[in-house]
């Protein structure tokens, strides 16, 4: 067990030092600026692709995925508005 305890002490020290080093790397603008730009570029490309798909379905006279999501969201909002009104009624009732 002595050997394990000794190894673990060494590991803990290595882990602490490595974590601190990685934190400094992950915080540096030399890493963050290009990573952020790359991530943003990929996401813009995906958003553009989705927009083209939406235009395609709309041109066919069909609802796109986002149209359907918006309709479902509005239904949920309607339900919440009904709950709002019920709550107001309950608050006013003696």
């Amino acid at each position: 067990m002595m050997l394990w305890d000794l190894w673990k002490k060494g590991f803990d020290a290595w882990e602490e030092a490595t974590a601190r080093y990685l934190e400094a790397v992950l915080k540096s603008s030399a890493v963050l600026i290009p990573s952020g730009a790359l991530l943003s570029a990929v996401m813009k490309a995906k958003a553009e692709r989705d927009r083209m798909i939406t235009h395609f379905w709309n041109a066919m006279g069909l609802p796109s995925r986002q149209d359907q999501e918006r309709a479902l969201h509005l239904l949920n909002q309607l339900h919440s508005r009904i709950n709002d009104l019920e709550q107001k009624l309950n608050e006013r009732s003696p």
Binding site: G36, L39, E69
Partner: peptide, 19 residues
């Protein structure tokens, strides 16, 4: 905090891409 404040990270692009 450092990641969120990275100017090249476009939050709107992420929401537009993923919902």
């Amino acid at each position: 905090s450092a990641w969120m404040r990275t100017p090249s990270f476009d939050i709107d692009a992420m929401i537009d891409a993923f919902g």
